[in-house]
């Protein structure tokens, strides 16, 4: 498919909205699920995001 006048951007945009909505929802459910578990008192460890883990992977000396 060679696009000259047509732009694949609209499709990319729409699919992004759809995936993001589903992914965002699953994160929200996941977060509440963790809260619920904490509330019940089964899981005491704090939930670290992988974002923070990355900070520890600094270049070695």
């Amino acid at each position: 498919m060679i696009l000259i006048y047509l732009d694949p951007g609209s499709g990319s945009f729409l699919i992004q909205l759809l995936i993001a909505a589903i992914a965002g929802l699953s994160i929200a459910v996941g977060a509440n699920w963790a809260k619920l578990k904490r509330w019940i008192g089964r899981k005491k460890k704090k939930n670290e995001t992988d974002d923070e883990e990355d900070d520890n992977q600094q270049p070695g000396a």
Partner: peptide, 26 residues
């Protein structure tokens, strides 16, 4: 991409917003 190739982004978007949580989810 194929299906919406000739639709303008603003038209495809139709005012829809994407929350920050949804973006993080993506």
């Amino acid at each position: 991409q194929r299906r919406y190739a000739d639709v303008a982004i603003s038209e495809a978007r139709a005012g829809r917003r994407m929350s920050k949580e949804a973006l993080l989810g993506l």
